[in-house]
């Protein structure tokens, strides 16, 4: 949060530092598939974020004590590559932040996967952040949703995620790293678009109830774009095949 003395101006002439409007997403590109060994995978570029997600399973849950006789268990690992940030080399392996993000990400997918279809098994979701520029947990969830859909694991919904924050009097959408570091608040949210339910909600900083309402509106509006790109990504591999056999 913006406590540091050398806080940069995040809004200049009504625009954000990267030229975006307050409610504007960074360029988002999603590619479904890519990892042959995984049951499903996806790659995503969101601004300067580059994230890859792979899904394995359903398979027998091991070690055995992790099994649930009534449903599948989801195991999720979000991790940032040691070379992923512009700053110094990160230590590899999960830190406390990554463990928390893995947990809240897992909970998103536990809600939408039909776990009861696979008692005793586990579904592994791996999210690797190759390059980071703010909003990586949202990018990871958006990417993993596509990977899960590619794997054919039945889901009730295709979640997406993004974040909002506050700079001065303005709510802004899809914070990049510098905005994340110096904004007055940061609120990542994941939504199930089918009925609009909130699947992930975190926040820290300073917000009023009205700010949160405005932020949710920004997120839902952007969600239409994110959801469309997710579905297009899922359709693309099959369109490639059908185009091949056209005429």
């Amino acid at each position: 949060m913006g406590s540091s003395a050398n806080k940069p101006e995040l809004i200049v002439n009504g625009k954000r530092l990267d030229g975006r409007a307050f409610g504007e997403l960074r360029p988002l590109k999603i590619v479904a598939g890519g990892l042959k060994n995984a049951a499903g995978s996806a790659y995503l570029e969101w601004g300067n974020n580059k994230v890859i997600a792979g899904v394995y399973g359903p398979k027998e849950a091991l070690p055995k004590h992790t099994q649930d006789p009534e449903k599948a268990v989801v195991k999720c690992k979000y991790s940032m590559a040691p070379f992923s940030s512009l700053e110094e080399h990160n230590r590899s392996g999960p830190n406390r932040r990554a463990i928390e993000i893995s947990k809240v990400t897992r909970e998103v997918f536990e809600k939408v996967i039909l776990l009861e279809d696979f008692p005793g098994s586990e579904i592994d979701i791996y999210i690797e952040v190759l390059q980071s520029d703010g909003g990586t947990r949202a990018a990871g969830i958006t990417c993993a949703a596509v990977a899960l859909a590619m794997s054919g694991i039945p889901m009730t919904d295709l979640p997406y995620a993004t974040s909002v924050g506050k700079v001065g009097d303005h709510m802004i959408l899809d914070l990049n790293k510098i905005e994340d570091n110096y904004s007055d608040a940061d609120m990542p949210v994941a939504i199930g678009p089918r009925n609009g339910e909130i699947l992930l909600l975190q926040m820290d900083g300073t917000l009023t109830k009205q700010d949160i309402k405005e932020g949710m509106d920004l997120i839902r509006k952007a969600g239409e774009t994110i959801s469309r790109l997710q579905r297009e990504a899922l359709r693309a591999p099959y369109e490639r095949i059908s185009n091949k056999y056209k005429n």
Binding site: V104, I198, L201, T206, I212
Partner: peptide, 22 residues
């Protein structure tokens, strides 16, 4: 003002519920 929020577990919330709980 609100300073931090955290949703936990798979169960979801609607926006109306969120506003009520705020």
């Amino acid at each position: 003002v609100i300073r931090a929020m955290q949703k936990g577990l798979p169960g979801s919330f609607t926006e109306k519920e969120l506003e009520h709980l705020i």
